[in-house]
Design a protein around this nucleic acid. Sequence first.
RNA 1: GGCCCGUUGGUCAAGCGGCUAAGACGCCGCCCUUUCACGGCGGAAACAUGGGUUCGAUUCCCGUACGGGUCACCA
Length: 551
Amino acid sequence: MSDSARLAQLLFPHITQTPAQLMEQVYPPRELPEGAVVTRFAPSPTGFMHIGNVFTSLVAERAAHLSGGRVILRIEDTDKKREVEGGAELIVRGLSDFGIYFDEGVLPGGEQGAYGPYRQSMRAELYHVFCKDLVERGLAYPCFCTEDELAEYRARQEQAGVTPGYWGEYAEKCRSRSYDEIKALVDAGKPYVVRLRSPGKPGGRVKLRDVIRGEIEMEENFIDVVLLKSDGIPTYHFAHVVDDTLMRVTQVIRGEEWVASAPIHLQLFWLCGLKTPKYAHVSPLMKEDGGAKRKLSKRKDPEAAVSYFSEQGYPASAVTEYLLTIANSGFEDWRRQNREAPCSEFPFSLKKMSLSGALFDLVKLQSVSAEVISRMTAEEVCESVLAWAKEYDADLYARLSADKSFAAGIFAIDRGGKKPRKDIAKWSDVRGYASYFFDDMLTRESADTLPDGETRRAILQAYLEVLDAADDKDTWFEKIRGLCAPLGFCPDVKQYKESPEQYRGHVGDVSAVIRMALTGRLNTPDLHAITALLGQERCLARIKDYMEKEC
RNA sequence: GGCCCGUUGGUCAAGCGGCUAAGACGCCGCCCUUUCACGGCGGAAACAUGGGUUCGAUUCCCGUACGGGUCACCA
């Protein structure tokens, strides 16, 4: 038995399987149609859901499903220091709230799929199988260096101006230990990590063919990176190689921050004798900050957290739709041509993704969201508002649910037709949008564009005599027009424009006064509908109140 | 600092050797309109920079500047 075989046995006495056995017997190739792609989203359960997570997972989901393949949700919980209780559930639920559905992995209903377990903390043995193989072949070794020693090396390397890390002469100490030496250390209970014995050389080159970014040439890895931490749990690098191999992932879609470590991954695949998946590195979402661009930051930017969007009440579909416009610029054109089609029909393409990080633009999101909401039916809007308010605005919820048909009436105004309004971009806008429907929330904004008090009084006095909230729209309109002539206003805007000097104003000015009396605003949806919804008594009361206080 | 990547209007972006350099958001104006919207039309607004290559560069190459990423027993 060779030294390395004895070493492998010493380090992993409990492992009996080989990588090949695992791959043939436990995790065989998937049976999928030609061209189908398997992707995955692999977050770490830190208890914080970044909007960038939604973006990357959306991209992975689209790429897989458009090809007829599958997406996996895997939890990367190999760092207990960062892990937060319930963090995984938060992500799983968050993603499903955004309508991003996974085929297997950690799903809302629990784990599902034949290639699990899907939490890395449950996969220790699998990593050990591959690691043992590497040790056996002399490609990995235990390292007993302490943090202090490592820090010292780093200091020396920095001083010398050479690449920091465990390599070359700095790696000699543990690289060259004999079996007996190691055995003594292990028996003495000394903690160790397992490191890769990298065959790379400084100056060596590797090429990465990235689906989004094209060919990238980089320096090859020559660092003896850690494969297994001292607690026996793998680092990201090693877990990535083992998991994506075993789960039969064909395309690794991940953040751009991983490009730099791709040489490590490529080398690991190669040394393990495995086929490398395709890589697609997605650019991060950026934020404008004092004229400069930077990554959206969880600390500085409230909109980095997905909770921000639910709190504000952006429909999840609006957020994903906006994200899609960032992902593929062709989306907007497609949307204009396919107003009602579900996003899933959009021919998303990884290749068309932008290389530079896009600024996350809340103003644009508002516009997209207003568009999305304008396409909803009154019932959908009403339900969504209610669901949102129940969680985030108890007062509004109480008001709306106290009289559901009244609430439904509010959202039915100017909605559902060919020209829906777009003045609700998020559910938190609703309180401001609908406040005047409630007597105790009615306030009147100041308006110096209205006729003088005396005129306003005359208009309202006349309107009071004919007002009937039950009128149909044409009758209502004719009554408004009827108010005009006796008071010196023109009942027809076109006519007014021909000779404005003959009038004190036009029918629009008259209705502005009525609108102000009824709603306290200059800007509201269809006045007739509002009048009807408010009802005779309330309309009369509001007009009288206005005449008393403001005329 | 080393290694990668990027740079078209305020923002997202088409473009892939020859164009008056699309479109969307935002902004401004006009039209439509009972108000408010919606919609329509129009406007201001861009190829970071210096060298090449070429008959011709936004497009190809090199340098510079600026921006981003990364250099852990974190992912």
